[in-house]
Design a protein around this nucleic acid. Structure first.
Lengths: 145, 145
DNA sequence: TATTGTTATACTCTATAACTATA
DNA sequence: TATAGTTATAGAGTATAACAATA
């Protein structure tokens, strides 16, 4: 492989980028009926994963900047899916919690996103799909917190 | 999986995104000594893959817009790595070819990028790494042209 | 009329720096 | 002084529309 030139479309960077684009093309339309984007669903998933978390904790877990999280929570709050309240004991922090509507949307949109993932992985055998996901988990380190 | 909630950091979208980020963090510094970015290396690889190609053909093969390719070729031309010339027979087209310096940079930078990919895949067994790449190729359709 | 390259423009995602309020 | 949230700003990356040259 050191002497033979690989095509650009065979490089890992190309494949990862276009895999992501392709998954996004399935996920976007699947989530549209629920009025949220894939990123917003990820925020909802993060918030429900660990119990009442501050914005910054959620940001670290998602791997986005805290300044980015502000806008994401803003949008979800405008849609009535989450609520902010100052944390008692340390009022610098905002605790972000899902509303009832947020939990409902998460349930239904999460199911739609899971279906999009299944569709994305459909070209692989079930065993290959499972190992593909498992390899990704091995390659991507879990978030710090 | 339909009833049990997955964590956001387990979703395929999260894993693909962060796999890409992690690879980019290895590839970027590896290419810095050669004065090119990962995207620019991809363009060089694309141009060398199929013989003298127009900008638009290269753009399709890379999966980027033709307006994006203008800037990429501009940068590579400024660095003396590629040269544009009108195609004889159809002067609307620009044929983009690697210069001697471009071929030399491609050889050395391509080797560095391959090493970065090996480093990225190192947490996987050789067999798992091979199947991971193969699965990606199955999931990502080859470019139109 | 259609196509290639180009420019201008805008939109998304992201990060950095500076501000505020709390600690 | 340090931290959490916020705002403003700037930088990538991308796409759309419009234009010039050519077919």
């Amino acid at each position: 492989m050191s002497s033979r030139l690989r095509e650009a479309t065979s490089s890992l960077a190309y494949l990862l980028k276009h895999a992501q684009l392709q998954l996004a093309e399935l996920t976007g339309p699947a989530l549209a009926p629920f009025g949220i984007t894939g990123r917003e669903l990820a925020v909802l998933l993060t918030l429900t994963g660990c119990e009442p978390a501050s914005q910054q904790q959620a940001a670290q877990r998602l791997g986005v900047d805290r300044t980015t999280m502000v806008g994401l929570v803003d949008a979800l709050e405008d849609k009535g899916l989450v609520a902010r309240r100052p944390q008692e004991g340390d009022r610098r922090r905002n605790v972000v919690e899902l509303t009832e509507a947020g939990r409902d949307t998460l349930r239904r949109a999460g199911s739609a996103a899971a279906e999009a993932e299944r569709q994305f992985l459909a070209p692989l055998s079930p065993a290959a799909a499972a190992q593909f996901t498992e390899s990704l988990r091995t390659l991507v380190p879990p978030p710090a917190t």
